[in-house]
Amino acid sequence: MEVFEPKIVAFVCNWCTYAGADLTGTSRIKYATNVKIIRFPCTGRIDFMLLMKALSNGADGIIVSGCHPNDCHYTSGNFHARRRWMMFRGVASYLGIDLRRITFSWVSAAEGAKWAEVVNKATDEITKLGPNEAYVKTAKKFQSMDN
């Protein structure tokens, strides 16, 4: 049987988590290769629609990560983002979207080891959950119409 390898998209901020992920690499820490990192200027820039697009394009899981509170390069971007995610989780789970597939974390530029841990944990969790079938099936139904 083919082993299920989840596709995970990570939306990370340029100033903390991206640098943190870089540190993971330069520290030669090994972590799951399932994650595809997309760099953003700030977590405040990460619109919830980007997550929805990732899911409908076949992502099995999502990681959203940025600077710790009070560490934002733009002072308050992550505070705004935090409120947005608090709201998003309420509405999304009300619609039946599985929140276990979406991981949120704060990873600073010095936390290379934490980044590896976050990715590994998310990968394990999503491997257990299996492919995001309900969502992808619904999305595929009309894909030919979209394009």
Partner: peptide
């Protein structure tokens, strides 16, 4: 998506709720 598709409808109503949140 412009046509009424299942995922597009879900996204539209999620977006509407989020933009009206609070």
């Amino acid at each position: 998506s412009v046509p009424s598709t299942e995922i597009g409808n879900l996204e539209w109503h999620l977006m509407r709720a989020m933009h009206l949140a609070g």
